[in-house]
Write a protein that binds this DNA or RNA. Sequence first.
DNA 1: TGCAATATGTCGCTATGAAACATATTCATC
DNA 2: GATGAATATGTTTCATAGCGACATATTGCA
Lengths: 110, 110
Amino acid sequence: MLERELKKGSAELLILSLVEPRARHGYEISKLIEQRSGGRLRFKVASLYPLLYRLEERGWIVGRWIEKPGERRRRFYRLTPGGRRMLAAQRTHWREFVDAVAQITGPEHA
Amino acid sequence: MLERELKKGSAELLILSLVEPRARHGYEISKLIEQRSGGRLRFKVASLYPLLYRLEERGWIVGRWIEKPGERRRRFYRLTPGGRRMLAAQRTHWREFVDAVAQITGPEHA
DNA sequence: TGCAATATGTCGCTATGAAACATATTCATC
DNA sequence: GATGAATATGTTTCATAGCGACATATTGCA
């Protein structure tokens, strides 16, 4: 149960958060995660793309190919209404999880 | 990299934190996690015991059978010096990870 | 021409969480 | 004295998923 909670509460939360304000493509998402975490967090392509497909399968995001002359083709993902609800739930979930870990590992029991 | 960070920073961190102040046995650890998290976090036996063996293999904890008359046999685990160093590293690691997630998912980029 | 950055994708390995199953003891209740 | 809940530890098997390595293609700069 523990790791399941974590997975639902972290990797997916990151993606959903990033596509919330605007549609983004995979490479952009991976760069954003790296930049905003100061290089501490990094998504490998073999993790990121399959995760995007899973999120799309579940109906939380939808991808759309954008092809412009003079640009490589990119697949932009945007949040669906269902994805928005999921994001809200996962934010709460993540907060609770972090609090729980703090309760268990905290110095108040030393 | 992301999930690896999580694993190092959560399940193992919980166990190491709990055996820090005193030696504890598996069942006690599982109950403590459940109690202190208000039932939100729960370790199944099929996760907990193999994890304890792994931590012992790596030399971070050592188990010792305690048998007293009128009591079931229980295996108490205590933190080793190496485990103590690992715990300190993982605490820092976890803090950094949580901060990084906050940076990425936070409202400051909306 | 060559190389870095951009952009997307797959294959195979490995780690691990968890359901289901298994065993045994202590203690309170009926 | 029987029944069952709580205590206590363990294994087998399965599903999930991250990641290293590999593959492909374009843009733009030196």
